[in-house]
Amino acid sequence: PEAADLRALARHLYEAYLKYFPLTKAKARAILSGKTGDNAPFVIHDMKSLMEGEQFINCRQIPILEHQQQTSALTLGHGGITAAHPGSEYGIMGMTSIGDQGPTDAVELRFFQSCQSRSAEAVREVTEFAKSIPGFINLDLNDQVTLLKYGVIEVLIIMMSPLMNKDGTLISYGQIFMTREFLKSLRKPFCQMMEPKFEFSVKFNTLELDDSDMALFLAVIILSGDRPGLLNVKPIEQLQETVLHSLELQLKLSHPDSLQLFAKLLQKMTDLRQIVTDHVHLIQLLKKTEVDMCLHPLLQEIMKDLY
């Protein structure tokens, strides 16, 4: 009976994951491996293709998913790439300005603004997913805020991994592939934003988790009982323990030949915290050095006094 309960929990979280996250790993890997036929993504590899990409995205039909229709007001209504689908699929760049005036910079500016908009929307998706974890909404409301504040960027980085390979990342719901070299060619410190995420993702992807594994792992991250300032740790740890049991069973069943996968996955949580710390410090540096820098209010809330 206990194993049956753990399997039911895994199914529930997988269904919530499919409901709230628009681009699954299965879809992303199909796009990246060229299995989507004529619908190959547009490749952005330099400033010229970045501008062409903006045109490209404006001319294409936007594949709004059924569950997204009710929230489409959040993602539509801005110009450029933002109008189609804001920026990086699970963008976490959190910036609005990338330089001086000029036609090229205007495109860059819109791109980075769109990253922020998409990040805010992704936070909403993660919040909805968190609320679907059994017991989460019964936790102290302050603790729910704390768990999201500290967990959401870690979740976004995990969600970005399936969209990445060693050469670049999918953005705009898989319609565009932006190369790693192009992102590295941006001026400092913008060029430093994504490289640590690529390094992490390439290693993380070797674990070959599927979407149902990912759903459980994301819930484990959210239910971390050691976040600073939590008022009532015990019920959070109890919830996490149940999800951990479910994840361990899930991995044994779906990856029987992958030794120590559960332990390897838990170790990734340590790496994640360092990536988030470095990311937040980079954003704080940007706020000081970029005159026009304006953080989205939701991202400000999350990053203020984070690390």
């Binding site: 009710q70 929230t71 908009s117 805020v145 999201l148 504040k149 939701l298 999350i302 203020k304």
Partner: peptide
């Protein structure tokens, strides 16, 4: 804490209805 995180708080309290982010 929830006072300092009004938007997060709002996201947690609301259902799936659109929130003006």
């Amino acid at each position: 804490l929830k006072e300092k995180h009004k938007i997060l708080h709002q996201l947690l309290q609301n259902s799936t209805s659109p929130v003006d982010l």
